[in-house]
Nucleic acid binder design. Sequence first.
DNA 1: TATGTCAAGGTCAAAAAAGGTCAAAATATC
DNA 2: GATATTTTGACCTTTTTTGACCTTGACATA
Lengths: 155, 155
Amino acid sequence: MKTLVDRIEQYIKQLLDMSLKGSIELKRNDLAAIFMCVPSQINYVLETRFTNQQGYYVETRRGAGGYIRVIRLSIEDDAELEKMLNLASNKKVSQQAGECLINRLTDEEFLTERENVLLKAFLDTSNMPIEAETADLFRSHLLKTMLLCLLRENI
Amino acid sequence: MKTLVDRIEQYIKQLLDMSLKGSIELKRNDLAAIFMCVPSQINYVLETRFTNQQGYYVETRRGAGGYIRVIRLSIEDDAELEKMLNLASNKKVSQQAGECLINRLTDEEFLTERENVLLKAFLDTSNMPIEAETADLFRSHLLKTMLLCLLRENI
DNA sequence: TATGTCAAGGTCAAAAAAGGTCAAAATATC
DNA sequence: GATATTTTGACCTTTTTTGACCTTGACATA
């Protein structure tokens, strides 16, 4: 059973897919009306499903004629991957951050669905008898290694 | 006279048999209502009857719209993989042993060439500032997780 | 130019809707 | 009778939904 957030998320992503520019403009109140919910629900969707980490950028404007613009950032070239590599080298990679990164790479078709499941399972250290510090280090190792493999292209 | 656990276990297994994907989604509260028991009884059933060793993998999500997903692993048709699962659970997995396992799985076409490269890179902890003990633990975690993923019927 | 109005969107915290944990009590089993 | 397994319930955490109240900006108008 899909939740409201899920449906709104899907709707926005569909709009993005259809748009040629990779960005769309919304009216918060209109969207809320379509889904028959309170306007702040839209903010919740944006905050939880369209973050920077997840590969989106959101611009808004208040007042009369206000809007919400959702921009999909794409990983066009290796430069973007290297940026991620930097992130992964930061020693501290929470499980959540790691999952975000993997989901994003999957969205952009750098990883297959199977690899996605596999990698996310690896990142999950919840049943490993180690300290948080070590877990973060471990994840950082995995992500870095994975990105290097991707960069070393065509395997 | 069957116990409550037994009946709930049977019910879930029936649902799994009927599902085409080898996985089902439950609502903990609904199930508890059906069997007129406390919700935590469902957890007990899952913990005691649907473990990895018994061939199941359970995913859950909390909060509104939460669910419990039970995934059946295809262990019966693959006694070989089950043996490996045991091996990987042995806490101590040297890098060499890990690579052997991965190569073997690749030979038998359970893993793609790409996954092979990726996984072997993960196993290499030589540039991680950790003790040998911890490294073995990591490898064991990776291998076990990998095997569980391979056994999942739904990916 | 300064000001008021109204149409957006923003914030934040409470309520609701799930699922999780843990230990005590009750039953079974040996 | 001792031990193992099952059942129950009180309390906790996570995620979503809702609503009351706040801020911003365009436009009209004095």
